[in-house]
Amino acid sequence: MFLIECPWCGLRDETEFSCAGEAHIARPLETEKLSDEEWADYLFMRSNPKGAHREQWLHAAGCRRYFNALRDTVTYKISATYKIGETPPSEGKK
């Protein structure tokens, strides 16, 4: 059971949160100009790394803010959480 640091509320139990999948996937502009492949890439393709993974979480039972977390998919350690719009910590760079 994770203990997750909401960037607003601090450390809270995992049961207050829900995970919203991989972070930093920007919605393309001018979607009608995209090829089927480009759109499918945005829609379906996720990185699924072994190790550091940047993902979006929602403090659903708390402040209802989305935020980002850098979580290791092997150890489950969350090394950092940061607000939407903030630069991810360097370990997350690929």
């Binding site: 919203a20 659903a60 209802r64 989305y66």
Partner: peptide, 13 residues
């Protein structure tokens, strides 16, 4: 509600 908040908070702040 969560879906719409997500767009507002993460994509169109």
């Amino acid at each position: 509600l969560a879906w719409m908040e997500r767009w507002l908070q993460t994509e169109w702040p």
